[in-house]
Design a protein around this nucleic acid. Sequence first.
DNA 1: ATGCTTGCAAATGTTTTGCACGAGC
DNA 2: GCTCGTGCAAAACATTTGCAAGCAT
Lengths: 140, 140
Amino acid sequence: MHVSAEELLNEKGVKPTPQRMVITEYLLSTDCHPTAEEVLAAVADKLPVSLSRATVYNTLNALVEAGVIREVFTEPGRTRYDANTSEHHHFVDVNTGRIFDIPKENIPHIADQLGEQFKVHSYTVTFFGEMKSEKKRAKE
Amino acid sequence: MHVSAEELLNEKGVKPTPQRMVITEYLLSTDCHPTAEEVLAAVADKLPVSLSRATVYNTLNALVEAGVIREVFTEPGRTRYDANTSEHHHFVDVNTGRIFDIPKENIPHIADQLGEQFKVHSYTVTFFGEMKSEKKRAKE
DNA sequence: ATGCTTGCAAATGTTTTGCACGAGC
DNA sequence: GCTCGTGCAAAACATTTGCAAGCAT
């Protein structure tokens, strides 16, 4: 289903260094919208060399710029990242802070509802609420 | 249309100090979704005494907690504030960063489109795009 | 050699916190 | 007098940047 990280990076014109590939692979493999810090923690030991914080930030910015990933803003103070770049939406569980993807098929198309002075490039819906029956209970 | 800031604060159980009233008044009077820093700059000279950064942050947090204002997340690194607490949406001009309110009447109700495991408390749509004719300057 | 990329550390920017003072109950 | 809000400065975070060194072309 996923193209390889290397292909993806080449496609988007980003030189596929080991650091970038590991970070991209991680983001492609998870749906939990990690912060930069979480990315660092998750991939640091997957590299033979050390991975610095600066490289994580540089890489994430490069990937955003290249359109490989997207930023997600759901909470103050920090940015989360999402390798799902297709138009879709988010549900934030206000108890856990966890973010769930909502496919755009679930949401009617609403980009054309604004006045004509607004030329919409993209839009995203953020739902805040709580999960009703959470079968997979996170440890707390 | 607006209740007075003092009434509003009392209603919400926030002790209406001069600092809090000035900040609340400012937020009620503007539609430009200011950051904490912008709030400070805007109201600092409206008080006979000095207004500290810490008080601005403390106040904004207290107001959010009390439900007087809401946080708006549209960009990395900083929080913006909105005294319009009714459900509504935002359009971000990608050129200027300016944020426009979109009344919820313009958007179909979409809170019920998710699976039933999602209990939605609120949702907000954020549009990214650009203004077509900037001759229609918003009054501010 | 050239040009990116990395890593470290320092710098920046935003927000929070510790603490003393002052106003109001 | 106690409590709470304020102001200042320092601290805590999140992120960016300067720079030297490394890798690939």
